[in-house]
Nucleic acid binder design. Sequence first.
DNA 1: AATTGATAGTTTTGTTAAAAAAGTCAGGAA
DNA 2: TTCCTGACTTTTTTAACAAAACTATCAATT
Lengths: 205, 205
Amino acid sequence: MSAVIDQQDIKREKILEASYQRFLHYGYSKTTMNEIAGDLSMSKALLYYYFPDKSELYMAVMRKLAGDYLKQLEDKLGHFTDLREAFLFQVNTHHEFIVNNYNFFDFFRLNEQNLPDTIWEIVGHIREAEIKLLTGAIQSEVEKGNIKPVANTIEIVEVFLDALHGIKVGGALPHKKLNFPHKEHLDEIHNKRLLLIDIFVKGLK
Amino acid sequence: MSAVIDQQDIKREKILEASYQRFLHYGYSKTTMNEIAGDLSMSKALLYYYFPDKSELYMAVMRKLAGDYLKQLEDKLGHFTDLREAFLFQVNTHHEFIVNNYNFFDFFRLNEQNLPDTIWEIVGHIREAEIKLLTGAIQSEVEKGNIKPVANTIEIVEVFLDALHGIKVGGALPHKKLNFPHKEHLDEIHNKRLLLIDIFVKGLK
DNA sequence: AATTGATAGTTTTGTTAAAAAAGTCAGGAA
DNA sequence: TTCCTGACTTTTTTAACAAAACTATCAATT
């Protein structure tokens, strides 16, 4: 019986993988259940045997992606030598996550404001983990006596995360282009973020 | 002849004022030229005598608004007692500007990525003035010996403005930042920005 | 020069039918 | 039973096009 369940899990994984590729390459609305089924040489009806509907399938993929991301963060939790290292890790990991899966997130842009609760749940977990990572780093520094104690650590970290996301190229003309920054701008962005980290960390001491 | 031009200018002003009220209350796309003309008890054709088209009319109003905002900044230029006061003034003034004219800016939300160059020009001027205000404040503090000299003042200010721009409501999804914030969130954003000021200013000392 | 009614030209909105895709189900194979 | 499918139904998207709403123009008037 356990073997049977394993088989199911393997098939579920294959479906998730094929779906991920489709969603990543074509986005949510331009991916059809027939295409996913076709990629796997199975009938569309079988997809509905494993997943209740299209959006649940999408969210299952999303949950998997989020799980990988969360694991990255958790593996590093509490293993930083100083504050800057923690901040840098957070910035780089998050950026990588977004860039690598950019097209996958089409779903977010299409549904604008009224997303399923499940999505919010996943996003919440991610944000929680990010905050946990950085608040942990700050508290650790406090305990080491490197920075003075603060009352509202979480709020501070939230502001810091938001601030980082605001740093873009091109003099911050409000959303001039929706696209991700070009390669030649990555260094500029990185330098700006380093500068923010410098000032921010100093502001915490 | 000067009197004639004055009359024209007065009428132009009246048109700008009526247009502003309409745009502010109903937004760009739900304001018609007929309605503006009706408010002024004039024919629609007369509007086209004074302004080439609807979007030029909108941008003329925008230019006027921006002018008022710029004047606010310039009047205060160099009149700050300390850094925090300058940063607070900048953030508060900007906040007020956005809140007071929130619906007016729905033009930005509708056209999203491809706005007329004129708009970017205006936005550029505003940003220039903001940078000037804050770099001036920093330099002044340096001269007073309150903070230690920095080489890259402009970069620092740019990072700060970018960071402000990135500050959105809590639990924001990865791409939510691309959307225009909702009105009910503006105060929350404002509070976060005040916290950023605290840390940032301290980080400069 | 300032103003307007009439009207031309363009964009938005509704309507509807066809196409495409989501989702269901009775039944077959393993 | 569990896994799977072809055929079917229902819902959503698309395309085409006419009607309505709006922008923009212009000859005529004060």
